[in-house]
Design a protein around this nucleic acid. Structure first.
Lengths: 330, 330
DNA sequence: CCTGAAAATGTAACCGATTACATTCCCGAG
DNA sequence: CTCGGGAATGTAATCGGTTACATTTTCAGG
């Protein structure tokens, strides 16, 4: 591979000049610049990123740590982040399957020298620990979890869930089942809390038989819905902890010949792209996921740019109630 | 940040020994190993990736160049690739929005020193040019495009499309519309070709009025379906170039009060996860996208491992006809 | 034509690891 | 006790850039 030295030799200049040309330094004659450019192209030279970032201490890469890559949620998130990164000439290093503290710690470690900043999304409680004993100067943004002294963006899960359940209650439902997310999951816990709060505020007694645990996948939603079909008296509404499970539930209900929303209403959370195309279209709490990702990236870049006098902030983005036919007969 | 020198000093050994410990060299006394380990942990040392890859010439990263990140297709693909990479301790560098030749060339360039290998997916014809004037020793795998002398995996688009249209013909349809993909798109062109072939083999004359151009997004499918509703005599079946457009078409047809499949049958291509949950569930040509990604990664790693005596191969994976209710009344 | 400051270019140290090669240590055989 | 050889460790070159500082060039003003 061609190195900067090869180019320097061929162009009859020093490596410093070649470097200056490639970094747009004004300290180069126009003539020299052109000559170096031409030679670079001729030799097919492109700077070695590792070498460059070793000496310049910048990588032009930001890391994204995700618990998983399954489903549209993460896809949208990455898209939002990438959109912002792209604009600034940054690349994305994606690492997934980091659910446990130890895995996250390992992943965070392995990012040293690879990235200029990190977006960490992990719904597991305590996920922020490994992040906190990173050097304070290293820019990190937590997504979906908050921690003192660390930048974070979280979704107003509880408020969103509460509003959705209030909507169901307003529609006359009293027996409202919930398909919970995994129990170690922060978002899941908050959404459950919103559900309980709405019920208790409406004076509806709690019935543990209506709480079914899922794992945020569509198949678990399917199974959960089948369980809910057997409740007595049967639930008249299902609030799923996320859209994927709601979609699964719709499938189970339709297979069982249940009319939606006449017999059972169904609502989800997230507003993934497919939600508007299900049958019937799914009521949900909209979180503009791509926008969330983009916002996260913007915030991270701020931190990267400042990275001295930067003060951590936490930000909570509200969800928006989207009522579609799955809870609202025409 | 702690460097290898700090650790060496604190542990009273040389940098070479520290390096050996971290790379699992057998040339270290058990006692020394333990001491170095302990000091490393105490100082919170983790090796600087850029430095490491500069001297070792390995990055433990593979690059993925995609035209876009929108929709489940790419999400699934990344998931498949990541699954394989993860196992081998590799990270993924994702770059998207590379549709034109020049952009691809730039992206490929910028990967030097960043990745050990590259998976390039670009449906634009000629996308492989920039890849070909990479040093032959650099492992690249083309996805969805083939080129002599370069590893590649492609989907049997034409065969899959042909089978699907044959299925529609078998169901008695004669006026079968197709929603095409973008016309520069290779996959789109091949699927169109399969469609035409099936028709001509069945002796059905071509009707350009039944060819509507879309851009692989659901909204374009929606619009296309509205156009198709106005054909006279009206088409009785729609074959969409991908599932996203088919999903959009379903939405338009339902909004227009058309029964599916009784009035108009609809089929797609890809079998994205949502296809089985649409109403009615969508007939499609299944391409196991995650498996495709995983396969691509496996192939790439083979090339990375060998990268001397490696001979390029091209591989075509067949699609599988999935018949669901959208083309098949019970 | 000379002078000196600004502009252009060059030299070499440095970033933080890996690793070839050199050196020291240890231990059993003679 | 000495010697030889393998095991353990150390020294220093190297990877390919960036950049502080040194040096040379250029050219306006005297």
């Amino acid at each position: 591979m061609t190195t900067i030295k090869d180019v320097a030799r061929a162009a009859g200049v020093s490596v410093a000049t070649v470097s200056r040309v490639h970094n747009g330094s004004p300290l180069v004659t126009e003539a020299t610049r052109r000559r170096v450019r031409k030679v670079s192209v001729r030799l097919g030279y492109s700077p070695h990123a590792a070498a460059r970032s070793l000496s310049s201490k910048k990588t032009s890469v930001i890391g994204v740590l995700l618990p998983d890559l399954y489903g549209e949620f993460y896809s949208e998130l990455i898209r939002g982040i990438d959109q912002c990164a792209q604009q600034r000439g940054f690349h994305l290093l994606v690492a997934s399957s980091h659910n446990e503290r130890a895995e996250i710690a390992a992943a965070v470690q392995s990012m040293r020298g690879r990235v200029d900043g990190l977006i960490v999304m992990s719904p597991a409680p305590g996920a922020h620990r490994p992040v906190k004993d990173l050097p304070a100067s290293f820019p990190v943004l937590l997504l979906g979890a908050a921690s003192a002294g660390v930048d974070s963006i979280t979704v107003a899960n509880e408020a969103g869930a509460r509003e959705m359940v209030q909507h169901l209650i307003a529609k006359g439902h009293r027996r409202i089942a919930m398909i919970l997310g995994p129990k170690e999951n922060q978002d899941a816990a908050e959404r459950f809390e919103g559900y309980r709060r709405a019920l208790s505020e409406a004076g509806i007694p709690e019935d543990a038989g209506l709480h079914v645990i899922g794992d945020f996948t569509d198949t678990s939603g399917y199974d959960a819905a089948r369980t809910i079909l057997n409740t007595t008296p049967r639930a008249t509404a299902i609030f799923a902890g996320n859209d994927a499970m709601a979609v699964g539930a719709l499938g189970a209900l339709r297979a069982a010949g249940v009319r939606i929303p006449e017999d059972i209403a169904v609502a989800g959370f997230d507003d993934i792209p497919m939600s508007r195309y299900t049958h019937p279209p799914l009521s949900t709490v909209r979180v503009d996921i791509a926008a969330l990702g983009e916002r996260a990236a913007v915030r991270l870049f701020e931190a990267v740019a400042n990275h001295r006098r930067h003060r951590a902030r936490r930000e909570v983005v509200p969800g928006q109630l989207i009522i579609r036919a799955s809870t609202d007969s025409p």
